[in-house]
């Protein structure tokens, strides 16, 4: 029904392509942040976990009353009626209010609620998104569990269920996985990010490729590349190489020699180029790391001049000669 009007959550940061599951929000400071949409499956799992917690609380409260207060049937009824209602209405908003946008279930699955446009997440938004759950989940559940409540015939019952099902299944009908509550509250559920700061490859490269040194990192690397040799690849290839080098750290060195061989062919690295090349001593890792450093330095320098070379097919503003001639009028994409 409203799927065509999905949020253009913000302009993506320049030069940073957004993945299919990524969205950009703009913080109040005006900086675009890339967030990762929560997976629908983990959202459902988080919800089920939360319902389990609610039931546990209820059972615990029931037992507590059972053992402390004298056993009164009526109170059991009160807890069952009132407790479940109050918990399902207030558990979610209060938890999201206190744990900064995550119920215990969401916390466990690493999810978080944020404002769709990057503003502060307000209490009223939290309240609304959770009140809507009443229609999204609990109403169809009641209709299925207690068909007599609505007093309708089977066919009507089915039709109503199908109609209400549209609310329930809303997250499947839009790209952002928004449920009705998210639409009404203007919120977005994302996967809470967690990334460690990995070592800078250029640092390690200088360390390993100049093994006997003299300690200073400004020492020239044994491999020197000309501007022409660095003119073949773009950012995509550079970052692929980065991934290869990082992955190799975890063990698998296979394929490195092959990659090094392909790069040598591509850039026309003469086997006899400085330093004196000895095939039996040629270490693919050292070569690749040196090439990575040089290539990154080259591309980053070009970036300072306003050229972002996306990949090796991106020849705009760049002639393969490798000269950093700033082609006028070539401002970059996005």
């Amino acid at each position: 029904m409203t799927t065509e009007a999905l949020p253009s959550a913000g302009t993506p940061p320049a030069g940073v392509p957004l993945g299919r599951r990524q969205r950009a929000i703009v913080t109040p400071e005006g900086v675009p942040l890339v967030v990762e949409l929560a997976d629908r499956g983990s959202r459902a799992a988080a919800f089920i976990l939360d319902v389990v917690f609610i039931l546990l609380i209820l059972v615990a409260a029931g037992f507590a009353l059972f053992f402390t207060v004298s056993v009164l049937k009526v109170w059991t009824a009160v807890i069952a009626i009132l407790g479940f209602f109050l918990l399902r209405i207030f558990y979610f908003p209060i938890a999201e209010l206190f744990f900064r946008g995550a119920t215990p279930g969401k916390r466990i699955l690493g999810l978080r609620v944020i404002d769709r446009h990057g503003g502060p997440l307000k209490p009223e938004a939290i309240v609304v998104r959770n009140l809507m759950r009443e229609v999204e989940v609990f109403m169809p559940l009641t209709m299925m569990a207690v068909p007599s409540l609505t007093g309708a015939e089977t066919l009507e019952q089915l039709l109503m269920l199908a109609w209400v099902g549209i609310f329930t299944l809303m997250p499947l009908f839009n790209r952002d996985g928004l449920r009705v509550g998210d639409m009404v509250a203007g919120t977005l559920v994302i996967a809470a990010p967690k990334a460690a700061l990995l070592p800078d490859l250029t640092q390690r490269a200088t360390r390993t490729s100049v093994p006997l040194t003299r300690g200073r990192e400004s020492e020239a690397s044994p491999y020197q590349f000309t501007a022409a040799q660095l003119g073949h690849y773009g950012i995509y290839e550079l970052q692929t190489l980065e991934a290869v080098l990082r992955r190799a750290e975890a063990g698998s060195l296979a394929g490195r020699a092959e990659i090094a061989r392909r790069i040598r062919t591509k850039i026309g690295w003469p086997d006899a180029q400085q330093p004196p090349f000895e095939p039996h001593r040629f270490d693919a890792t050292v070569f690749l790391e040196a090439f990575y450093v040089a290539q990154r330095a080259h591309l980053e320098r070009r970036m300072l001049f306003g050229h972002r070379r996306k990949d090796k097919h991106d020849t705009s503003g760049h002639d393969h000669s490798g000269h950093d001639k700033a082609a006028p009028g070539r401002k970059d994409r996005r």
């Binding site: 320049a14 940073v16 700061l197 990995l198 800078d200 970036m303």
Partner: peptide
Amino acid sequence: RSISLDQGLLAYLESLANR
């Protein structure tokens, strides 16, 4: 974003700023 091509660094900063 405008000067570095180190993906590890970019991902880290993105996540740090997010958190």
